[in-house]
Amino acid sequence: MIIGKNLSYSYSQTQMLQFPNLKVDAGQTLLISGDSGCGKTTLLHLLAGLRTPYKGEVLIDNEQLSEMSSAKLDQFRGEQIGVIFQQSFFIPSINVFDNLNLSPFGKKNRKIDEVTEKLGISELLNYYPNQLSQGQQQRCSIARALINNPKVVLADEPTSALDDKNCSMVAELLINAAKNQNAALIIVSHDYRLKKKIDQKIILKPIDTI
């Protein structure tokens, strides 16, 4: 379960983003949408502990991110939060298997075979990232986010670069995989194609300026 309570973020002294409270239980999904520039990605980064909120708190299974040391937060993110980006980022010099296995914590609880089989990418493990199509890359990104069996999966515009066919397939894979693993899934997107598949929805307002 992930909770975002009274979250706000300040880019500068004149710009303050204030976000609605949110709560996603294990196995549930939330879609955050809104116009470009309204702070969707910033909210996602706050939830992932990649940015520090101006005010408010993020709790994952009752553990507050802001109370963690920098080292503990890095470890917590690596083990308990899976993140998927709009662009599929990979280390180009290593193959898909090594990219999925990328972790400073060894191979504890990692389910590469199971996850890659479910996502239909078992045969791609020896390929290098530049040998994959966009759809394949995005499926590999999903696999990387799920391989640790995380409590929370955060996805930033995971389908915006995909055509309708790939969008539907990737969204379904992501949602089903997260549900199967009993992970809370938050998707940030303005992609209308996702709306029907998600449990909760939040629409962010434009930036509040002070």
């Binding site: 920098s70 890095d74 690596g78 993140v83 280390i91 972790s103 400073p104």
Partner: peptide, 16 residues
Amino acid sequence: QHELALMRVVGFRPIQ
């Protein structure tokens, strides 16, 4: 920079 940022996301510490 993106691959290095990715490494941070999956848990690598700055010192690593």
